[in-house]
Computed example of a mutant assay.
Amino acid sequence: MAGEAESGGLKFDPMAQFIVKPLFGDGPVGLFTVTNVTLWMAFAALAVVLMMVMGTTRRAVIPSRSQSIAELAYGFIYKMVEDVAGKDAVVFFPYIMTLFMFIVFANFLGLIPMSFTTTSHFAVTVVLALLVFVTVTVVGFVKNGTKFLGLFWVSSAPLALRPVLAVIEVISYFVRPVSHSIRLAGNVMAGHAVIKVFAGFAAIALVSPLSVVAITAMYGLEVLVSFIQAYVFTILTCVYLKDALHPSH
């Protein structure tokens, strides 16, 4: 929050908006403490239910706005799964659809003033990425058995290079959840921090008009980024699922 410092300048902390706080009281955050993260994750889940379930309970030939949005989202993700991972991956469509809808709603809710952006925290994105990693790995071994290890053996490369490439492929595979989670949290956090910095300069009379323009531009960009990051997270999930279903190089 911006305020006058003793030196006469402005003092604000753009990272303060990401602090996890107990929802009730001021005590320490424990394992079962209900926090602002808990609240806004619940809001995101509730928003998904309201749009996808309540919005389609009265389906009609001429759809309502909520039905149109729900059907558009359904068709968009279904086509993504089918095109990227193949028709045999459609069985995982409910999971991928849920993943996309939760992330996109969590991102959009985070743009509401005074709200909390849950996807800016690695504790949230790492869990989502690990769930994808474990699911893909289990599916790969269940469907293909030891043939799943063919994902790490580049048979098209020269024989002398294959062991080296195998080590690189294994490292790359286990780095997936790290990059998967950091990409989402990092982009969301960076955008919100920049908006907060511009908002801090709004208290300066000479800079205020430029600050308002910058905030408006960044906010519009963040709306786009909120959707793109949900899309990127989801399409990477489809790519990883394709590797599990068809592991050979």
Rank of each mutant, 00 (worst) to 15 (best):
P94Q: 10
A157S: 11
S64D: 09
K87D: 13
A16H: 01
K79N: 12
A5C: 08
I168K: 09
F18E: 03
V139D: 00
L241A: 10
M54G: 15
L128G: 09
Y74I: 12
G140W: 02
S181W: 00
L149M: 09
L224F: 14
A5M: 06
T137C: 02
V225N: 10
Y219F: 13
F76P: 02
P177Y: 05
S115P: 00
P94E: 07
N36H: 02
M101V: 12
T38D: 10
F201Q: 04
V34A: 15
S7C: 09
G191V: 14
V178Q: 04
A205M: 08
V127F: 12
V225M: 07
L184N: 04
F100A: 02
I77N: 08
D88F: 03
L23G: 06
V142A: 13
A244Q: 04
K143Q: 08
F141I: 15
V170M: 11
A202P: 00
R176Y: 07
G75M: 10
A217Q: 06
M80E: 02
A166Q: 06
I168S: 07
V124L: 07
L109M: 06
V213I: 14
L149A: 05
G220Y: 01
V134P: 01
L149H: 02
L130V: 12
A199R: 09
V49S: 01
V132K: 04
V34E: 04
L236G: 04
V126F: 09
I204N: 10
P163Q: 11
M52L: 11
I171F: 05
F174K: 06
T35R: 06
F227Q: 08
Y78N: 08
V212L: 10
D83G: 03
T125L: 11
G27F: 10
V164H: 03
T237P: 00
V232R: 15
K79M: 12
A185V: 11
H121V: 14
G30A: 09
S115R: 06
M97I: 04
Q229L: 14
V139G: 01
F233K: 11
A205F: 03
S211H: 02
A193T: 14
M80D: 10
V53H: 02
S120Y: 00
A60T: 14
I77G: 07
V34D: 05
L151P: 00
A214S: 11
L161E: 13
Y78I: 13
V207S: 06
A70E: 01
G3D: 07
V167K: 06
F122Q: 13
G140K: 03
V84S: 08
I96G: 04
P22D: 09
P113C: 07
Q67D: 03
I204H: 00
V142M: 14
V197L: 09
H192R: 07
L149P: 00
Y173I: 09
G200S: 02
G30F: 06
E169P: 00
F93L: 15
L111I: 04
V223D: 04
S64I: 12
Q67S: 08
V167W: 04
A44Q: 05
V154K: 10
F108D: 04
G200V: 03
G150Q: 05
T38C: 15
I182C: 01
T35E: 09
V139R: 06
F93S: 11
T237V: 15
T98K: 06
Y74H: 14
V90H: 07
Y240E: 15
A44N: 08
L31Y: 05
I195Y: 00
V104M: 14
V134N: 01
M189Q: 09
V81M: 13
L131R: 05
D88N: 14
F18A: 08
